[in-house]
């Protein structure tokens, strides 16, 4: 039997939106769907390693690198961020309710075989290099995404 497919475009780099994307992705994987998350623009920050990776970059790209959150544990909230207080509060509440943290959700997604695709075009724009992103990613563009999306029933843009 051919597997059902689900795709998600994660465009946003907000903690709350990334959590929603990964919960849906993990749920779809539990439905035995073939799941793809396509990361573009600010969504790419979710995939950054939290340590500083020394890579050769231009001045503008370096500035982008410094200004954007370095990894899934550094993302801010789309509402009530309050200079970083909001994410601290939400993480505390999530722990209390036994909900998985974003880094745990990402790990679970990889374990469940969710395909994580980084958009190479926006990586160039934001000056992000493969070495700066977590392991186990696929690198591709819009055509690869559409290839997956055109035979999926669930396609979300977050």
């Amino acid at each position: 039997m051919e597997k059902e497919k689900t795709t998600i475009v994660l465009f946003s780099g907000d903690l709350d939106k990334a959590i929603a994307a990964f919960i849906i992705a993990n749920g779809a994987a539990a439905y035995d769907h073939e799941v793809t998350i396509f990361f573009t623009f600010w969504g790419l920050n979710t995939l950054r390693k939290d340590e500083l990776v020394p890579v050769k970059k231009g001045l503008l790209e370096k500035a982008f690198g410094w200004m954007m959150p370095r990894g899934s544990s550094k993302l801010g909230l789309s509402k009530m961020n309050m200079l970083g207080m909001g994410p601290k509060m939400i993480k505390h509440v999530m722990k209390k309710h036994n909900a998985l943290s974003l880094p745990q959700l990402i790990e679970l997604a990889q374990e469940q075989g969710v395909k994580l695709v980084a958009c190479t075009m926006t990586m160039d724009l934001l000056g992000l290099k493969e070495e700066e992103l977590i392991d186990g990613l696929t690198y591709a563009g819009v055509a690869a995404y559409l290839g997956d999306a055109s035979d999926a029933k669930v396609n979300l843009f977050i």
């Binding site: 919960i23 749920g27 994987a29 539990a30 439905y31 309710h97 036994n98 909900a99 998985l100 679970l108």
Partner: peptide, 13 residues
């Protein structure tokens, strides 16, 4: 028991 969404379904699967 005690697990939040989506863990129950993930574990069951």
């Amino acid at each position: 028991k005690g697990l939040a969404c989506p863990m129950p379904i993930v574990r069951a699967k």
